[in-house]
Design a protein around this nucleic acid. Structure first.
Length: 628
DNA sequence: ACACCAAGCGGAGGGGATCG
DNA sequence: CGATCCCCTCCGCTTGGTGT
């Protein structure tokens, strides 16, 4: 992987910059992943004994001497986008460039992360970094406290039902002169036929999971397989389209519609430690002369819980709808016809992450053709933008948050949006006050009666809280799901990563390498439960980064399940907190008489991460300075 | 090892919205 | 107003996690 920098594209004000971000000398700074065995077995008691010898090149010198930029004050409220590190990447222009309120958890949840480069890609001027953005549209919501009181501080997680359709749309910005990559041997290899594909991974074992695209019921689906749905189409990326817009870069809209997860995630609400998640990937692929397909880059969604088809099994009063991006009208075109469009309001299509900065070249997403589409991408014929009246209609009828009927179903005459005000999505801001949360829709739903069917089916399905406390109970419960009082609580809730006890983390570390839950169960029963709840670890952070550490950077799928930028932010928080946490962990090791190796393994893991991300941060800082 | 039970599945169908 | 769609729910069953 010579001269290959694994940094993600983080920030830029123009597509040129995005594509031409100067990478620092990766030779000197690159973290040597090869020192880790891919099949590192964390069950081995002796592992820790081998830590130092097994990874000789790892600079095991905990970076406590951090830059002044890092606060070492544990009480320092953690602001999701306020880190000094981020300031390196911030471009103030972005703030005024349609971005997007990146602190909005809705966007946070529905957006995709920064591009992850898999191989160095070259154009006429050297290495180039494709920019990729995308967003989920569909009936997504966030659910909290599915495990009852055990995880009361568990933050929201993006959730959907397996049967619900969703779509993805976004943009890929590429240099028009992308022609080759650098392979593992450092050779320049020509590439052809760029395409965009989607796929999904599950979180526990990192295996791929199927996403299907469901045909219209009236479509010519003759076989049961056709009716059940097929693999989503691949998007060809024509680098020659619209040369008048930008002679050097091309912005290509992409979209997949009528998608469903084929399978639900495992353990929905069963075990807090083994909740499975799915992560959707959008892949930028290319074909080599040999016909082999190679992944150039990818972006990943956040972790998604996919429920099965029995909403009654879930206490959906705690579900909080995420802003309805899907909300665009669904053209009833019966349609797999070429030329129909995905009606994506550009206003909602802005990138969720300020880091993307795709706006410079971005085309209105109204240009996104429906799929399947002629593979000739020159057929990306623009559609007339919606008229104001159309837009009004769309907004009024669809831009509402998708309130799960399972819980808030109400008389249709009142439940459906009646005012323009309702177009505003529910703000999931954690700082919401009552007024902010209680939007008119929810209010109207609450105040309206149950449908006859709901009454017939009984209150039993509607949850005890509502039965007992009625509207108030429901609203307070729902509000609880998204509103957290203290800055400290906000800090936790702002994370996608929920803290677990050290014990849980240990279990997860093991479980992530078990091939069955039985294995995890045996492990857990062997290790016991909850011995020190004071020590909190970010389960996912550890899992993700162990997976990352085990990766070899060769493009092999590693079990990353979140955005790399987020990881860096997380690690920065860990850096701040570490000095506080480490003594507690060491203390706990003695007090708990827990396995020394397990405790030390976690400590070691965090230190590895600190080292690595300190280096990453320095590299980013250097890159930024070089640009400026 | 066993029983219990929650979660998920396929099949089926209803309610409401939208379209022609 | 009928056709169609999406979403939701029920039923009966299977699977598999959990407790004893």
């Amino acid at each position: 992987m010579a001269a290959y920098d694994t940094l993600t594209i983080s920030s830029s004000t123009s597509s040129h910059n995005i594509l031409r971000l100067t990478a620092p000398d990766s030779r000197s700074n690159q973290f040597n992943m090869d020192t880790f065995e891919h099949d590192l077995n964390f069950e081995a008691d002796g592992l820790l004994d081998d830590v130092n010898t097994g990874i000789p090149s790892l600079p095991f010198t905990p970076s406590y001497e951090l830059s002044d930029a890092f606060s070492t004050t544990f009480e320092d409220p953690f602001s999701y986008h306020a880190g000094p590190f981020e300031s390196l990447l911030d471009d103030p222009n972005l703030e005024n460039n349609g971005d997007t309120n990146s602190s909005d958890p809705d966007n946070k949840l529905l957006g995709f992360g920064a591009p992850i480069m898999k191989v160095p890609t070259l154009d006429d001027n050297g290495q180039t970094w494709p920019a990729m953005t995308a967003e989920l549209y569909g009936m997504f919501f966030v659910a909290e406290d599915v495990f009852g009181g055990e995880t009361a501080r568990r933050p929201m997680e993006l959730t959907c039902y397996r049967r619900n359709l969703f779509q993805i749309s976004g943009n890929i910005i590429l240099s028009r002169s992308i022609t080759r990559i650098i392979n593992d041997q450092g050779q320049h290899v020509p590439i052809y036929n760029l395409i965009a594909t989607i796929s999904a991974l599950e979180s526990i074992e990192g295996k791929s999971t199927e996403i299907i695209s469901v045909p219209w019921k009236t479509a010519n689906a003759t076989t049961s397989e056709d009716r059940a749905g097929a693999a989503p189409p691949q998007w060809p990326l024509d680098l020659s389209i619209n040369p008048e817009l930008d002679p050097t870069c091309v912005s290509i809209p992409i979209a997949w519609k009528r998608l469903q997860f084929k399978h639900a995630t495992a353990n929905n609400g069963r075990r807090k430690g083994l909740q499975q998640h799915y992560v959707i990937q959008i892949n930028l692929m290319a074909t080599l002369a040999t016909g082999e397909k190679i992944k150039l880059a990818e972006i990943q969604s956040g972790a998604i819980i996919v429920r099965g088809r029995s909403p009654r099994n879930f206490d959906s009063r705690k579900d909080v709808p995420v802003s309805d991006k899907k909300g665009e009208p669904k053209p009833r075109t019966m349609s797999n016809e070429v030329g129909t469009t995905v009606k994506v309001d550009p206003a909602t299509s802005q990138s969720s992450y300020r880091f993307y900065a795709p706006n410079a070249v971005q085309q209105p997403l109204d240009l996104i053709p429906d799929w399947p589409i002629s593979l000739a991408s020159s057929s990306l014929t623009p559609e007339q933008p919606p008229t104001p009246s159309q837009r009004t209609k769309r907004n009024s009828s669809h831009n509402r948050p998708p309130i799960p009927k399972a819980r808030w179903k109400a008389d249709s005459s009142t439940a459906r949006p009646t005012t323009q005000n309702s177009a505003a999505p529910i703000d999931l801001s954690l700082a919401d006050d009552d007024a902010g949360y209680m939007n008119p829709q929810v209010s109207s739903r609450n105040s309206s009666g149950l449908s006859d069917r709901d009454r017939d089916r009984g209150i039993g399905q509607r949850g005890n809280a509502e039965k007992e406390g009625g509207v108030n109970a429901k609203t307070s419960s729902s509000k609880k799901a998204i509103s957290v009082g203290s800055p400290e609580d906000n800090e936790e809730a702002l994370y996608e990563y929920f803290p677990l006890s050290l014990d849980d983390c240990r279990c997860d570390l093991q479980a992530s390498r078990c091939t069955s839950y039985g294995c995890a169960r045996r492990f857990k029963s062997a290790t016991g439960k909850g011995q020190d709840q004071e020590i909190l670890l970010s389960r996912r952070l550890i899992l993700l980064n162990f997976g990352e550490i085990q990766g070899d950077g060769s493009g092999r799928q590693s079990p990353r399940t979140t955005k790399e930028i987020d990881l860096i932010e997380l690690v920065l928080k860990w850096l701040r907190d570490w000095q506080t946490r480490k003594p507690k962990m060491i203390e706990a090791r003695e007090a708990m008489q827990m396995s020394c190796s397990e405790n030390a393994l976690i400590i070691k893991a965090v230190e590895i991460l600190m080292d690595r991300y300190t280096v990453e941060r320095q590299k980013l800082a250097q890159a930024f300075k070089a640009r400026v």
